[in-house]
Amino acid sequence: MPPLIEIRNMKKVYGEEEAAVYALAGVDVQVERGEFVAIMGPSGSGKSTLMNILGCLDRPSSGEYILDGRDVSQLSKNELAEVRNQKLGFIFQSFNLLPRLSALANVMLPMLYNPVEDISDAEAEARATASLEAVGLGARLHHRPNQLSGGQQQRVAIARALVNRPPLILADEPTGNLDSKASVEIMDILHKLHREGVTIVMVTHEPDIAAHAGRTICVRDGKIVQSGKCAEAR
């Protein structure tokens, strides 16, 4: 089995010539299946840039990205959309729920765009309900995001990320907008997912959140540095 994620000499440059900013200056990362990895580093070090490329939302300027055995760095927009739908689940710092849709409708969205499986309405609703129940929101199916607490909204987002059963969950500061109690709830859910075999890559600023992960990758100035230097970088 190849690693789930394999990145080689990845660079991301913004701007040109003298004004060029290397958000990623040659990064190599491997993530094995079933790993729970935290990414840490100072603000502006390139964590989100790396996550966006891992999430196929952005393309690297150069370098290779092999996801689940497939080179995705040269895929077309449509192929990338399919990869995002099938292989990836996103958890954002700001939840990114559609405000006018119910929790259930939000969780059903990824199934709307499923290119390989035509899911009936009833089936989609059943899967979304199960997904919300798995994050403890079985009683909040028809609530709108503004009727839910921050922690509950983030749990809806997790249910949405899980609903197509992707092998990889990408979470960019999932607890960044939450208090410590809600953060603990979210981390409990991520732990449960990890135990069930889902691979998780998570960006965080907080060492106690990072401590939940099996391994921490430290980023500084667009480069991976030794894990020991994470603390000093903060």
């Binding site: 927009k77 399919e82 995002r84 709307l112 499923n114």
Partner: peptide
């Protein structure tokens, strides 16, 4: 715009 970005993240193709 954010909604469009989110839908794209969830797998919406340009044609969708």
């Amino acid at each position: 715009t954010r909604e469009i970005g989110l839908r794209q993240a969830l797998g919406a193709r340009p044609a969708d």
